[in-house]
């Protein structure tokens, strides 16, 4: 048996890399390099908090969902997202234990704007079609990035992702069903979907992050690939998304708002109009269309309910 105490720092690192390269899973109490722990904390707390912030744009449409059936569907969907947030924050909390940090710190980091949430959840929703489009294409994009990490070297994250991905498949079906009803519906309903697609398209391209560090000055993809947390680059994931969804979008007689979009047969990839990466940088600095409004909603509800959390910790058994 290898005992970690007897090893030098270099040997520990070498043994760690051997483990993850052979497909072994790292557990919460195992030794791990500081960079790995930090990368995971950042990735998983951002993922968890994005699930929770991601509930906000959709919850706007829960009471307004246009039938009893749709009301039930979207309620279940938003509840799942909160459940994913819970699951992920627990994984992050375990990783933060050596620093004496808890979920309360994650929340404070969000409120102080040190911890960011996913760029797609800074966007505004305007119509019911947005609720469908989020389920169909945003969750569809999430399935692509998350299945890419199903074999992540960190065991607890991989395990959480298995459950999350299974539920995301239902979400994408829920979204697709809303979109199909609209696309097959009246002229007004069809226009509603087209308008939603026009508004969300750049955000969907941005979803996967910049192609490289050169685009925006920062990207975490190198570290996450080195440590076998994910397999593919941002651009590879974006191409998978385009492969999967462009035919489906076109089959609903929708128009993708990009005249330059085409498949390059020689290079075997999609050529598309780059989204505005300066705008992306603004969004992830919490200067997107709804960034501050959603943060304020979270902050104010957290403060408004502080007495409840205090009361629960004071309950005498």
């Amino acid at each position: 048996m290898v005992t970690m105490r007897a090893m030098t720092a270099d040997e520990k690192m070498e043994y760690f890399m051997e483990r993850i390269e052979s497909g072994d899973k790292i557990q919460a109490d195992d030794w791990m390099p500081e960079e790995y722990r930090q990368t995971l904390i950042k990735l998983i707390s951002m993922h968890g908090i994005s699930e929770i912030m991601g509930a906000l744009p959709e919850k706007e449409w829960v009471p307004k969902a246009p039938s009893l059936y749709r009301k039930l569907g979207i309620m279940a969907k938003v509840q799942d997202e909160m459940g994913h947030g819970q699951l992920l924050l627990r994984v992050a909390e375990d990783l933060m234990k050596p620093y004496g940090k808890t979920r309360g710190d994650i929340m404070q980091d969000l409120f102080n704007e040190d911890l960011k949430f996913h760029n797609v959840f800074h966007m505004e929703t305007k119509t019911w079609a947005d609720a469908g489009l989020i389920g169909w294409l945003v969750d569809g994009a999430a399935i692509i990035t998350q299945t890419n990490m199903l074999d992540a070297s960190y065991g607890p994250y991989a395990k959480a992702l298995q459950r999350i991905c299974a539920e995301e498949v239902f979400h994408a079906q829920h979204g697709e069903s809303i979109i199909m009803a609209l696309a097959e519906g009246t002229k007004e309903q069809q226009a509603m979907v087209q308008d939603a697609l026009n508004r969300w398209w750049p955000a969907l391209l941005m979803f996967f992050g910049p192609p490289s560090k050169a685009t925006t000055g920062a990207s975490k993809q190198e570290a996450t690939i080195k440590y076998r947390i994910r397999k593919n680059t941002n651009e590879e994931l974006r191409q998978s998304f385009l492969d999967k969804y462009i035919p489906r979008i076109l089959s609903l007689s929708l128009t993708i708002p990009d005249d330059t979009l085409h498949f390059d047969q020689e290079k075997k990839h999609w050529v598309y109009q780059q989204p505005d990466w300066t705008e992306f940088k603004n969004i992830i600095k919490n200067n997107g269309p709804k960034s501050q409004a959603r943060l304020n909603l979270r902050r104010s509800s957290y403060e408004n309910n502080a007495w409840v959390r205090e009361a629960l910790s004071a309950v005498v058994e």
């Binding site: 929770i52 509930a55 906000l56 919850k59 829960v62 009471p63 009301k71 039930l72 309620m75 279940a76 938003v78 509840q79 909160m82 459940g83 947030g85 819970q86 924050l89 909603l297 509800s301 309910n305 409840v308 959390r309 629960l312």
Partner: peptide, 21 residues
Amino acid sequence: SEWLGLAPHIEEDVASSSITQ
């Protein structure tokens, strides 16, 4: 359902939205 995403803690959000559904 108006409470969705705003309950006092995340576990409660999941539990009470089950009741709402």
